[in-house]
Design a binder for these strands. Sequence first.
DNA 1: TTTATTCATTGCAATATTACGATTAAGTAT
DNA 2: ATACTTAATCGTAATATTGCAATGAATAAA
Lengths: 109, 109
Amino acid sequence: MGLAKTEMFTDEQNKIALFAKVFGHPARVSILQHLFKINACVCGDLVNEIGLAQPTISQHLKELKHLGLIKGSVEGTSVCYCIDTDNWAKMKRVMLQFLDQDVSKTECC
Amino acid sequence: MGLAKTEMFTDEQNKIALFAKVFGHPARVSILQHLFKINACVCGDLVNEIGLAQPTISQHLKELKHLGLIKGSVEGTSVCYCIDTDNWAKMKRVMLQFLDQDVSKTECC
DNA sequence: TTTATTCATTGCAATATTACGATTAAGTAT
DNA sequence: ATACTTAATCGTAATATTGCAATGAATAAA
């Protein structure tokens, strides 16, 4: 099918999965790391930075923007992207809660 | 294509993407949360707990096992699953480093 | 006004993912 | 041995993802 049966899961589970999914491609990881590293708007050079074709990068940026993790503002002919810090923080809280579940000492298997 | 060009990214970026990808489906999120919640080996009842068919659950478990996040041990006719705490901790370190990148005050866009 | 430049969108091919019925494998019980 | 239980695997259909060439839209430069 290729189609997740989201209706049988909680909103939280679906949200975690959506965030994780967008991190599930190295190009998007790389884009985000670059945006963090230069800590400013990046106008265009993402295509040079990462080795993928321009439409491919554009598509990855669209997905990141769709989830609200980055913002883009038009600046003449180019577009400036940067991390949406508020939404990043919100996402982080959700993911941390999932990752920080801790197993008590009880070893079983 | 549907095929990520992993060779143009760092090992770290690929590793983050691999972990994130496995969390990118609510069924696997749900399985992991359940394993954490009951904090013991789960023998079988995941199929009842989650509403998917047995082969589907088995396939998701396989992916989680393949990444080392869970272990399964045969117990008679059934199989007991639980979190692999060591590997979970390792994964957590990698993901936290990615999520905790912090944007300094510089607001741009 | 033409010509670049920059980025989004469209369309498409290749591959991956998700889900499940049917089957198999392996252990248990009768 | 036979029947039952549990879980993995196989095969397959439906859908999603990835990547890029071609094209389009919008601004800037000549």
